[in-house]
Design a protein around this nucleic acid. Structure first.
Lengths: 104, 104
DNA sequence: CAGGATCCGAGTAGATACTG
DNA sequence: CAGTATCTACTCGGATCCTG
């Protein structure tokens, strides 16, 4: 990929990483803590969840807020950046439905 | 990923495969043969190009036409399906420019 | 609680050589 | 010309265990 940061290539590369969209979906619907995600997406490795959350934060798609300190609790919420992007994702989703299933 | 064919996940997964968009770009601009692609994208392995072309044809994003038989020549062109999709990709591209580079 | 460190296995990109 | 076959290398997900 030559890590071509200038284009959508890089973006798609990230977005297609395993579990990214699923994790986003949960945050979207429940504005959850790390433990919540782990509980609902129990089959996903904690290391992977952690990695994805870190990357999502670097992309500024989610926000990390400390909501209590003993025991420490963190809440993840979506940013405006993601919300504005999600409209484009929905368009692609609609496009997929319009063009139907591809021959598997 | 559970190969959930019903959603955009599957689509992104394909679209982010290495060199897919780059190969499409060349076909878009030059409507080329296999040799043309190999010549211009010289650093990409022929096996990989071949694989991507096959997948792109399965997705019905490109069309394969025989244009001569001795020596055999094949021309790849984009389908309406891809052209309609490309508008959505462009929107994401615009979105990226609007939101700027993410902190690397 | 919210992760980080280590190690391992599977899948995929890539190098090289060959073919109808 | 337009690929395919084989083998190697590397990346990344996942299991398990550990910690501020």
């Amino acid at each position: 990929m030559e890590k071509c940061k200038c284009s959508v290539l890089w973006f798609f590369d990230f977005l297609s990483k395993k579990w990214v969209l699923l994790i986003i979906k949960w945050i979207w619907e429940w504005a959850v803590t790390f433990t919540d995600i782990k509980k609902y997406l129990w089959w996903i490795n904690a290391k992977i969840i952690s990695e994805r959350l870190t990357e999502l934060e670097e992309w500024e798609f989610i926000r990390r807020e400390i909501i209590s300190t003993k025991p420490i609790k963190i809440r993840y919420t979506l940013t405006e950046k993601w919300i504005s992007l999600s409209k484009e994702i929905e368009n692609i989703d609609k496009w997929m439905q319009k063009w139907g299933e591809h021959i598997s």
